[in-house]
Amino acid sequence: MPIKIPDNLPARATLEAEGVMVLREADAVRQDIRPMRIGLLNLMPNKVKTETQLARLLGSSPLQVELTLVKMTNHVARNTPSDHIISFYHDWEDVRSEKFDGFIVTGAPVETLPFEQVTYWDELRRIFDWTQTNVHCCFNICWGAQAAVHHFHGMTKYLLPQKMFGVYRHRNLAPASPYLRGFSDDFSVPVSRWSEMRREDVPADSGMDVLMESEEAGLCLLNDPAHRSLHMFNHIEYDSHSLSDEYFRDLASDKPVPTPHDYFPDDNPSQPPLNRWRSHAHLLFGNWINEIYQTTPFVIDEIGNEVSARAERPAIALPRKRSA
Rank of each mutant, 00 (worst) to 15 (best):
V20R: 12
H282S: 08
A28F: 07
N74E: 12
F103V: 02
D266Y: 03
R169C: 11
V202E: 02
R24G: 12
I316H: 12
S214F: 10
S214Q: 07
I5T: 02
F139T: 06
Q53N: 05
P62E: 09
Y293W: 13
D266K: 13
N223V: 06
A309K: 06
L219C: 11
L57F: 08
P256Q: 14
S244N: 06
H136D: 08
E237K: 04
A176E: 15
L243I: 03
N134D: 02
L23F: 02
F183R: 04
S206V: 09
D245G: 09
R313K: 12
L284T: 10
S253F: 12
S253I: 09
N79S: 15
L219W: 08
M232Y: 13
E51L: 03
K255N: 15
W92Y: 08
V29G: 00
A176L: 05
P273A: 00
D205I: 01
D185M: 09
A226L: 08
E196Q: 15
M1Q: 04
S244D: 12
Q294W: 01
N79I: 00
R24N: 15
D201Q: 10
E291C: 07
E291N: 14
A324L: 13
E306Q: 12
L211E: 02
G166Q: 06
E291K: 05
K157L: 11
E200R: 14
N223W: 14
M155C: 09
D185V: 01
G154R: 05
G39R: 00
R181C: 07
F152T: 09
T50Q: 08
P178C: 09
A147R: 05
V167I: 15
G286D: 06
D129H: 09
G304L: 11
S206I: 07
H282A: 14
L221N: 04
I127P: 00
R228I: 03
A281R: 05
F187T: 04
T156R: 10
S279E: 15
N79E: 15
A145D: 14
G207D: 04
I141L: 13
V48F: 01
A108T: 02
V110A: 13
I33C: 09
S244T: 08
D239W: 04
E196F: 03
I5K: 01
G144K: 03
W288I: 02
D129I: 05
S240R: 15
G144S: 09
T52H: 04
L243F: 10
S323C: 10
V110D: 11
R171C: 11
E291S: 11
V105D: 07
Q117L: 14
F115E: 01
F100C: 02
P319L: 14
E215R: 14
P81D: 11
G144D: 06
K47N: 00
A77H: 07
